[in-house]
Design a protein around this nucleic acid. Structure first.
Length: 406
RNA sequence: GCCAAGGUGGCGGAACGGCUACGCAAUCGCCUGCAGAGCGAUUCCAUUCCGGUUCGAGUCCGGACCUUGGCUCCA
């Protein structure tokens, strides 16, 4: 079997994918459920989906965990502002998220752990860090990670920051951004938290932002698993801190491969919630665009490259999908004489080759398009048209474009 | 400022140091009762700039300029 190569942020190199054990463990940073997820977020989720599908296609068993971040400063602030309870709000946006996943034909993860349902595990892992001397209790009652104890800090993001002693409890911009700071693992209760608190051995309070990923990944995948994925904006500080935490608690980096999906741009700028220049899947479907066209567009570029979202691109994606579906439909009544079976074999080989190279979905779509063109030009006989259909099915099982569902 | 990524036709985007993809747009045909879809053909003075290496550079080296991203909200 040809090996898949993946770009590991940790080493900044493409590496051959060699799993640690029988089942490939994948942890993916899921949505923060205080807003609608936008198609930039979904670029990462779609990439993850194709990776999982492709690994299964290659015969691996995969266990994927996708966390649901249902507690953090922004979520609390949003709930307060909208006059809703945190639970009410996160429940709503989680439901929407799952609906959107289905709309985009994304496979569900094996586990969708919620931060609020893992407080005992969170407390436990913080206690481990304290026992091992990586965490301490601050004067304000919060528990902080002592960054000076972790020599490898910064290895993932390659940032050269100065060691400082500024503590960050709230997830806000520090005034001196070039100074590394101890960050909160457990945030002591404050009035604005309202009814959101847990009474634990660490006192009355709530989990910090980064800790859930350490707690939930170690619970559901063990302290060492294969792949951790997220958007590039998670590299720093989130994943850097996750690595620090795991080292503090278990003495090792939790993941062998760290994959990061680059941002989706709109009009040449990053699509983000804070810049409010984003579209959600339902914005676009509401305008009459097909979900699979959105997906097609988001897959049309290798995940490590920036992709600029335009409506022209969306329209093109729509046309390409239609073209492919039309070609498949025609095969149904094929009654020609050409033995086109070779086409299918060749296309499949190329398809795998480009995906093996760091999951280049953009090129995979090109292969799919060219294969479509080739098939249309021929007049396949019954037998080879069956082969061709099978090949389309296989490709679709990896890309999840629902080519056969209409 | 520091750390990255990148600059290719009207647009989007490929390209082991050699044969100048491909798609969109545009034009013309074929097919069609009309439309759509499909097929064929055609058009377009493209590699940010300046040096260097080479028989040969979009590709390698050096230097500018510009764009974007990260630098404690974020997929």
């Amino acid at each position: 079997m040809i090996l898949l190569k993946l770009f590991n942020t940790l080493t900044r190199q493409k590496e051959e994918f060699l799993p640690l054990g029988e089942v490939v463990g994948i942890y993916t940073c899921g949505p923060s459920v205080y807003q609608y997820a936008h198609i930039g977020n979904f670029r990462t989720f779609i990439f993850e989906d194709v990776l999982v599908r492709y690994l299964r296609f290659k015969g691996y068993k995969v266990k994927r965990v996708m966390n649901i971040t249902d507690i953090e400063d922004k979520a609390l602030a949003t709930a307060r502002k909208e006059g809703k309870s945190l639970w009410e709000m996160t429940e709503y946006y989680s439901r929407i998220f799952f609906e959107d996943m289905e709309t985009l034909n994304l496979l569900p993860a094996e586990v969708f752990p919620k931060a609020t349902e893992h407080v005992p595990e969170i407390v436990d892992i913080i206690k481990k860090m304290m026992t091992r001397g990586f965490a301490y209790c601050g004067k304000d009652g919060s528990v902080y990670y002592d960054i000076s104890k972790f020599p490898d800090w910064g290895k993932l993001s390659h940032l050269k920051l100065k060691l400082g002693k500024k503590k960050i409890k709230r997830d806000e911009w520090g005034e001196e951004s070039s100074i590394i700071s101890d960050f909160a693992l457990w945030k002591s209760y404050e009035k604005e938290d309202g009814d959101v608190f847990w009474i634990t051995e660490l006192g009355k309070g709530r989990p910090g932002w980064h800790i859930e990923c350490s707690a939930m990944s170690s619970k559901h995948l063990g302290t060492r698993f294969d792949i951790h994925i997220g958007g590039v904006d998670n590299i720093f500080p989130h994943h850097e801190n996750v690595i620090a935490q795991n080292f503090g608690a278990f003495g090792e980096n939790p993941s062998k491969y760290w994959l990061h999906c680059r941002h989706l741009m709109v009009d040449g700028r990053k699509m983000s919630k804070s810049a409010s220049n984003y579209y959600t899947p339902r914005d676009l479907t509401g305008m009459g665009h097909k979900p699979m066209a959105i997906k097609y567009l988001l897959l049309s570029m290798n995940y490590r490259r920036r992709l600029n979202f335009t409506f022209e691109g969306l329209r093109e994606a729509e046309e390409k999908i239609e073209k492919i579906c039309n070609a498949i439909e025609r095969l149904e009544n094929a009654s020609g004489r050409d033995d086109a079976g070779k086409l299918a074999v060749k296309a499949m080989e190329r398809f795998e080759k480009v995906l093996d190279d760091n999951l280049n979905t953009g090129k995979a779509l090109e292969v799919l398009e060219e294969f479509t063109d080739d098939c249309v030009k021929q007049n396949p006989d019954k037998e080879s048209s069956e082969k061709i259909r099978e090949t389309f099915k296989k490709m679709d099982s990896v890309l999840g474009l629902g080519l056969f569902s209409s």
